[in-house]
């Protein structure tokens, strides 16, 4: 089994918002840590989950697939998923895969938190 070079931390700036800080690589090997981080983030009435990609080192196509399955889980919990910190390159990949139509992209944490309300 492939190993992952990924470190995820979960913060809760408010009762209704959780931020998942992504450090490292999002590949197929990231499934278990990413879903565990989401479980931790989505407890206790969280309405918006924000992914912080500021320290993303690499994401391959399996990583994009993981974001799709994560988004499905978020939608089923009637939550929203936002993101910030994406480089121009990864913003292009969101555009290529049309994930930008499902995950709102913000330039920084302040903008994402303001949008989360």
């Amino acid at each position: 089994m492939a190993t992952t070079q990924l470190n995820l931390t979960v913060r809760k700036p408010s009762n209704s918002v959780a931020v998942i800080d992504i450090h490292g690589e999002v590949t197929g090997a990231a499934e278990t840590p990413l879903m565990s981080a989401y479980e931790e983030a989505s407890h206790n009435g969280v309405r918006t989950v924000i992914l912080n990609f500021s320290n993303l080192e690499y994401m391959n196509s399996s990583g994009i697939g993981l974001l799709v399955t994560l988004l499905i889980r978020v939608n089923r919990q009637k939550q929203r998923m936002f993101s910030y910190g994406l480089s121009d390159h990864y913003q292009q990949i969101f555009q290529l895969t049309r994930l930008n139509e499902a995950i709102s992209i913000y330039p920084d944490e302040t903008s994402a938190l303001n949008a989360a309300g």
Binding site: E57, Y58, M59, N60, H89, Q92, I93, Q95, L96
Partner: peptide, 17 residues
């Protein structure tokens, strides 16, 4: 750009409408 950024840019297609 780091080596990882360069390899990512080579690996991914460019977006097109």
């Amino acid at each position: 750009p780091s080596e990882k950024q360069k390899s990512s840019e080579q690996a991914w297609a460019k977006p097109s409408d």
